[in-house]
Simulated assay, not measured.
Amino acid sequence: MNYPSKLIEEAVNEISKLPGIGKKSALRLALHLLKSDQSQTEFLTRALTDLRTKTRYCRQCHNISDAELCQICSSVNRDESLLCVVQDTRDVLAIENTAQYQGHYHILGGVISPIAGIGPTDLHIESLVSRVRQNPEIKEIILALAPTMEGDTTAFYIQKKLADFEVTISTIARGIPIGGDLEYTDEITLGRSIMSRTISHTKGN
């Protein structure tokens, strides 16, 4: 693709690095920003810079947060007995959109994947174990991980780590396609999966 200037080319190259954006879409975005008021571009630049430099993570669940504790962890209206374990923030958003779950979350930050070089120590699994150990109000751990080989491996590992605790471990029902991601699952299917989760481990067993 031929560009009218080096500046446009550099902008297109950077924008096209974003997921789901090809060169043509990146060019349209770059030209839109060029034609827009300079203040709009400055606002976007400031928002992206703040996103990278000011974003915090909840010390308890590892969700993106504006404070030490995220809105969910600090809410008095959430069910303290339920703890849903997910891969990342996108899964929290997907489950929250179902309006079927009122418990708390724990974000792992990924799944175990030897091929990608990701092991248990690279995830927030130990903090999950500590959280369960320190909070006797937690009665059920819901493993809401994608039904992939990596997701199943991670779920199995977590079950072993929590086997000695007096908690029930359940997994969301497999209404989600094998190999699918939670964020792409429709809200009705995901909501039903949460509500009809299956028990894989009962207290102390």
Rank of each mutant, 00 (worst) to 15 (best):
T168D: 02
A47D: 11
E126D: 15
P120M: 09
D79V: 02
E137Q: 15
L44G: 15
H106D: 14
T98S: 07
A94W: 05
G109T: 05
V111C: 06
C58E: 06
E80N: 13
I158C: 00
G119V: 11
H62P: 02
H124C: 03
Q38C: 03
D152Q: 11
H124T: 02
D122L: 05
L51E: 06
S113I: 12
L128F: 07
L128R: 07
V85R: 00
L31Q: 13
G175R: 04
M149I: 15
H62W: 12
A144R: 12
F165Y: 10
R52I: 09
E150M: 08
Y157W: 13
V86P: 01
S81L: 00
I125H: 01
D88Q: 03
P120H: 06
T168W: 02
T53R: 10
A146E: 14
L123Y: 08
R78M: 07
T168F: 01
I115Y: 11
C84S: 07
I118N: 04
R131F: 08
Q102T: 14
L123F: 09
I172S: 01
T98P: 07
R56D: 07
Q100M: 09
T49I: 05
T55W: 04
T148C: 11
Q100W: 04
E96S: 13
T148A: 11
K161F: 02
Q102L: 12
G109I: 06
H104C: 03
E150W: 05
C58G: 10
L82D: 01
L108S: 05
D88W: 01
E42F: 05
L51R: 09
L51P: 02
N135S: 11
R78F: 06
H124P: 03
M149A: 12
T98H: 08
T49D: 12
L128T: 04
R133E: 14
S65L: 07
H104K: 15
K54T: 12
A99K: 14
L69C: 11
V167G: 00
Q40L: 15
D122H: 15
C70A: 11
S65W: 04
L82Y: 00
A47L: 14
L162Q: 00
